[in-house]
Design a protein around this nucleic acid. Sequence first.
DNA 1: CATGAATGAGTATTCATTCAT
DNA 2: AATGAATGAATACTCATTCAT
Lengths: 195, 195, 195, 195
Amino acid sequence: MTPRREKRRRELLDAARDIFAEKGFVAATVDDIVGRTGVARGTFYLYFDDKLQVFGELVSDFFARVAGSIRPIELGAGAPTPREQLRANLGRVVSLCLAEPGNVKIAFSTAFGVDAALDERLASFYASLHTFMDETLETGQRIGLIRAGDRRLMVSIAIGGFEQLLQDAVSGAVPSDEAELVDALMAFLESGLLV
Amino acid sequence: MTPRREKRRRELLDAARDIFAEKGFVAATVDDIVGRTGVARGTFYLYFDDKLQVFGELVSDFFARVAGSIRPIELGAGAPTPREQLRANLGRVVSLCLAEPGNVKIAFSTAFGVDAALDERLASFYASLHTFMDETLETGQRIGLIRAGDRRLMVSIAIGGFEQLLQDAVSGAVPSDEAELVDALMAFLESGLLV
Amino acid sequence: MTPRREKRRRELLDAARDIFAEKGFVAATVDDIVGRTGVARGTFYLYFDDKLQVFGELVSDFFARVAGSIRPIELGAGAPTPREQLRANLGRVVSLCLAEPGNVKIAFSTAFGVDAALDERLASFYASLHTFMDETLETGQRIGLIRAGDRRLMVSIAIGGFEQLLQDAVSGAVPSDEAELVDALMAFLESGLLV
Amino acid sequence: MTPRREKRRRELLDAARDIFAEKGFVAATVDDIVGRTGVARGTFYLYFDDKLQVFGELVSDFFARVAGSIRPIELGAGAPTPREQLRANLGRVVSLCLAEPGNVKIAFSTAFGVDAALDERLASFYASLHTFMDETLETGQRIGLIRAGDRRLMVSIAIGGFEQLLQDAVSGAVPSDEAELVDALMAFLESGLLV
DNA sequence: CATGAATGAGTATTCATTCAT
DNA sequence: AATGAATGAATACTCATTCAT
């Protein structure tokens, strides 16, 4: 891959991310993407097989980056408290998401059910996310950091709350100050809503 | 509106709900809907202006029913405790949602960004939901039932967690026992995840 | 199938036959076909799945009609001589082909190798034609009407000569008088070219 | 033309012949051709004006080689009999064709009607072939070697039978033994099919 | 009321050909 | 000479919506 090719490919991916975020996967046309990039229609197909591949690549990259920003909780003697480590993880993910609002919109609010291949890809991401969370919670329960309860339900609620908050933050529905968001999430995890 | 007309309209709405739930708004075709109903294509347009109107009506009805199942928390002397009333409200909504999985799929997981008019309609539903929740939380904070914190963020997290749990329940990703779901939600609201 | 539908379908088939004959399968566009028929583009797809289906139907029908015009040689006492029956068969096929020049062009000179599905269809027609001819020649050899020789080679040469003559006749390269064509074919079958 | 250039040109022609034979003129892409040759796309256009020119050159060369392998029948005293000369001519053409199956496929079974310019080129080849055959038959009739009859029809049938046999031979539909093919053709020319 | 035939705008994708490097 | 990135015209097919019957 020559640098030139790399650059053009990057331009197309960036344009695609913006367009997908604005219009959604179905409504976005290849014409929109090449139009924003300023290249001809055929050029798109020199870099990607089809619309779905670009989408998949964007989502894959983003999820990989999110996953990469999470550090496993260390329980060793000199390590920060688990709560501090948890807060640090939340901070990194929130920070990354606030920096890439387009990817948040794409990854979290694109329709399931529009394209079978797309569905499968999204489903596999969520499946591995759930597995990871479940294992983490299991450890937490064992060491007495996480309360008892059906982990699948806990994971479902936690992921939903987290994603919704981020979606609302990047869409402007709620304030998007990183510290505030992390505080709100921590407070929820610490004590729920009720006094 | 004659009873006959009413019945036909109902059949079309039911078919549309199933199709939308299976394929999503965009992928669902008017052909699918009339095909399932057993009427001709043109008939659809005798009852609805267009595809979007049917969708909007389904979502409107469902949201109205959800809203109708929620009773304001009463603080009077002879009333049950606020926690009991909250649990009862959660129970009614969960029960309603489990009874109408198709509507849950439609209302909670349909993509924003696919159709501008659709977006607006969904946004207005969520806006009023948020307003209602915000007011409820405000009351709760005043009487010392809800902890302090930015209500918008609390609402965002709570709604997200609630919707995700219901989506996962109707899609089979998590168990769909009403009591378990309500317990899990109450536990989250009572004490979050951490010990 | 209503009469109206039947008629429209017929119109499209007729237009398609003419267009295919003029431009060939690949160069012919659906636009050409609907343009000649005077209907909208989408209408085409109400009657046929795709371009290939129309082509296949035209070729199928024509080959079926050709096959139907051939009567097995009867050897009974009161029957005309085999030579007379052969000549009559040739006459019927030639007559049919001269009456449908478009179908002759389509059926005999459309490219193999353009579309895999198309190839298969054409190949199966030719396979059954070869089988039929081979069996006929076998009978002929047994009763002493056909000279000895590798039947596959004889069939190949005979079919090739026959088709080429018909193609040239409908394209105007050679005279297209039915009796003359039949005479020429009979003469070839009777005694070849050499004295 | 440097030897290097000549060699590169030859490589492209060889690749083109194979690709055309495999896929047909329309389905064959310039990409296929340069891909097999191992050069870049642009290089193709340094050697040929366009796809059609390559095709035309392949067909021209082949037809020229076929024509060159045919020796006029000599009637002199010491010459072999006309039948022997005819058989020798058939043998040379059959031999050449069996040695170049790709060219046979290209030359004999490429669709008319796909490309106007292509049509014209093919038509002119066939026109000169017909003229040559017609003149040859005329001589044959004058010297009593060829029976009476409309020469155009005789040529049409003979060419069609000959080409079909060769096509079937190179495609594997019939045995491709040179002697057998020549025998079958001679037998047909000598006495047709009927006893 | 109901039908279903017809419409036509809209979109992904291919590929021969050009041209800057 | 050679490269290969870029172009953009061309085309099959879908589907919401209309309307004559």
